[in-house]
Amino acid sequence: MDRQRQAEIFERLAAHSPARIGVGRTGTRALTQEVLKLRLDHAHAVDAVYGEVSPALLAEFELFTVDTQFQDKELYLKRPDKGRLLSAEGSAAIAERCLRRPQVQVVVADGLSAKAVDANLPDILPALMDSLEANGLTAGTPFYVRGARVGCMDDIGRILEPESLVLLIGERPGLAAATSMSAYMCYRPYPGRKDSERTVISNIHARGTPPVEAGAHIGSVLRKMLEQRKSGIGFII
């Protein structure tokens, strides 16, 4: 096969892959622009982990903030168990300010990417609220949890006893996407629920599942969850 033809085919194959290929070299090392691009993507991912959600954004959506027991980012990363329990102040705050036993409790959380909240909340939250209404569901009082792991759903469930809970939380950032969010949903969350008892829509970001689309989808998932009285394995979407 001639070189021209090979090059055309390679280009076509490479177009199917997001991998960093056909990048060239200097000696055995990567080219400067490629090295910097990699560093930039990594920097965004690290900043997503260590960042804070914009207070203005939380104010705009009238979300008050409660903390888990994480104390600081280092302990948050080392001790996932701390991020599954609300602080005493946080528990008291939601007990005081939130509607008890709502049909749907909406919770927003930083998780491993504060940037995911910044990037997706303006689209996903209004779409989600609309889809709840369209599905005839009523929501309780939404709020924001800082230093959260997915398991904090159970601790919130213990205090507020919702029929269902949806947690919008930042995912572990990759180089391709530092702003990816997941929506975890659970029927009647309480301490001791297993991972397998939660339903998740993951990869929510502009180039994955668009946040507006994900938000619009959540209402019907929750409605079916309430009808079937279960979530996770055995729940039919």
């Binding site: 892959s17 997001p18 991998a19 960093r20 290929i21 990048v23 990567a30 490629e34 990699l38 993507d41 990594h42 572990r172 990759g174 180089l175 391709a176």
Partner: peptide, 13 residues
Amino acid sequence: GVPLADDCMLNYQ
């Protein structure tokens, strides 16, 4: 080894 250290499927380096 992965292309430029970035595994585009497993999301790690």
